[in-house]
Design a protein around this nucleic acid. Sequence first.
DNA 1: TCAACGCTTTTTGTATACAATTGACGATCC
DNA 2: GGATCGTCAATTGTATACAAAAAGCGTTGA
Lengths: 233, 233
Amino acid sequence: MTDVASPSRSAGRTANALREALEDDIAVGLYPPGTRLDEVSLARRFSVSRTPIREALIELSASGLVEIRPRRGAFVREIGIPRLIEMFEVMAELEAMCARLAARRMDATECATLLDAHARCSAAARAGDPDAYYIANEAFHDAIYEGSGNGFLAEQARELKNRLKPYRRLQLRVRNRVGNSLAEHQALVDAIQSGDADAAAHVLRSHILIQGERFNDFVASLAAAEKTRRARG
Amino acid sequence: MTDVASPSRSAGRTANALREALEDDIAVGLYPPGTRLDEVSLARRFSVSRTPIREALIELSASGLVEIRPRRGAFVREIGIPRLIEMFEVMAELEAMCARLAARRMDATECATLLDAHARCSAAARAGDPDAYYIANEAFHDAIYEGSGNGFLAEQARELKNRLKPYRRLQLRVRNRVGNSLAEHQALVDAIQSGDADAAAHVLRSHILIQGERFNDFVASLAAAEKTRRARG
DNA sequence: TCAACGCTTTTTGTATACAATTGACGATCC
DNA sequence: GGATCGTCAATTGTATACAAAAAGCGTTGA
């Protein structure tokens, strides 16, 4: 019985807290793609009735993390390889757009935030702490989203990133990605600080698309994971 | 008592049909931005209970067309000018991306669809039929979304366009926008047919951003409309 | 032995009942 | 006369009850 005490904002709406809790559970891998989300089980688990559970599932369905098949239940959405590639393609473009705008519009405070995140990335990389790097990396990208000065764009980028989260975990384990990633971050910081919008866009697009070229590894590992999962289930 | 008989897909889910109905009503202006959407009134209007109404409102809230303020009700989202500008900025980039990909990937069938839509645009423009132009224009842009070969991108583009619909109506009335629009369409078709991805992206980005430069007119008319609305209400 | 049919059980979808909070109206006090 | 507090009505949020559809299961027939 997990108590959903996360106050977050918007009290008086259990469904919101539930949505966030389920989002995390899905991102973390507690509910892997394909898992059926039973309403009564979830209701028991969170000690609420089916109503707010249903509402949370509908929200998740709208955000694309969950698929509701009418009269058949809610499932953690299984995103196939082709669609994942499509999503990364869009993600790269959104991030590139953020970078371009950030190079033009970022103010000193936002730039300081970016540099701080970059420093934390470096530290985590030196320490060889992948979890810390994951956190700092997220802060770094968030700083660029915010730095775009386009709040709507930032929202879109964050939302898409969220949808990709369940699959991203598998991805960052490959090779010595961290080292290259850090170098790309540095190039991006340089481009932004020198106000070179096109360079910033190019660097960040590549930063994402390189992940796409290293995607073969990713695809392979994902396909393998899928195979073992199917074998188990 | 409006009967929500729109079967669409996903029968056994009244909420979906309700969402589409409300989407249309909002897009058409039946519920202008800021309108309060009372659950019991809607339930009466569609002859259902509050439950599916609530679910539809939650979906609309997730898509951004409606804002749910906890314990205070659902309102048609009022999008301020700054945010509208942000959204158009993103829209332009998404469409540019579609165009770039379409120039590379579009096959003969998709190209035929595009040309057909273009022809219908021309016909509507010659006939001076703005409604027909609106329809054909939508088909034209849809053809480019689909032509990108990136289904996810196409979805994102359509969804954002949907969110902008309530505000777009006001916009297309300005000047002889139709003539210029048509010329830009032609340039885009040429770029796509010659496979010039950069040109296609540039043309379509401009096509949207020109609407942004003519945005002053739009802003003015919207501010005026808002003023009269406030005066009435 | 396998397949198809029908029943039962489980689960979703919808309606209704209840609780709790909000907003408004009115009365009272300064 | 104005402002503030209290009470009441109205509306949302949650729980439960009921209906209908789907899936699982066993039985029966070929």
